[in-house]
Amino acid sequence: MDLKISAVKTYLNDVFRSIFRYGKMPRDAEGQSFAVFNNLFLHIHPVKVTRHSLKPTYTFGLGLISAVLFLVLIFTGVWLMFYYIPTVDEAYNRMLDLRSSTNFGFVLRNVHKWAAEAMVVFVILHMARVFFTGAYKPPREFNWVVGVFLLLLTFGLSFTGYLLPWDQLAFWAITVGTSIAGYVPVMGEDIRSFLLGGDIVGQEALIRFYVLHVVILPGLMLVLLGVHFWRIRKDGGLAHPSENEDASAGGGE
């Protein structure tokens, strides 16, 4: 009997090891290194980081919080897609349904809304942090540029999502917002009607904003986020005072 139990244990352990090759909780340096770089999801991290980069008052976790908000937005956004219909006749009704007849529908929509507003705020704060700590200096120039495009994508995602509830707030905010595009000299009106698929915000605009919001912009965001994270690692981790020309004067750990 004992023999059988231990055989089963060995077998289960083999199964576990086939997935996680370096055990449950690696405690030595070798295991902790392998745990990171042999895992597809973890290997976007470097194996080691400076203590300086972990100080809460250095980054305030602003970039990470932005990324977490984006994950929450994907999760709640896909969930909302099960309820939402991007037509002028149905969209608003679906908002009312989320409030009244869908279990915890209001929580779902509220989480999506507040995560979206928070993401705009935290992405801007993250950019300010990077600026005020001089973290865009060589060799991190290009990652700052990627970051600027991530900020623009964040605005784009927020703006396209703004129209989808199809209430008065949505309709007129998008009417005003897209009218700004019309002020571009010569081709302004063309840009505007390309965005809206017509002269006014209507069914064509709704479906365009919907596709941009749920496929095109999140897709671009995921690719650029991948580049952004990858570059942090390739550029030597977070900016560190020892990189300064007069590094001996620079403090920090």
């Binding site: 300086h52 250095y58 600026f131 005020f132 700590t133 001089g134 973290a135 865009y136 200096k137 060589p138 991190r140 120039e141 290009f142 700052w144 540029v145 600027v148 977070l238 900016a239 560190h240 005072p241 020892s242 990189e243 300064n244 020309e245 007069d246 620079g250 403090g251 920090g252």
Partner: peptide, 16 residues
């Protein structure tokens, strides 16, 4: 976009 290409001097990195 141009910020890191205009301001390249390696001072003040990693310090608030």
């Amino acid at each position: 976009i141009l910020v890191p290409y205009l301001d390249r001097k390696k001072v003040g990195i990693g310090i608030w």
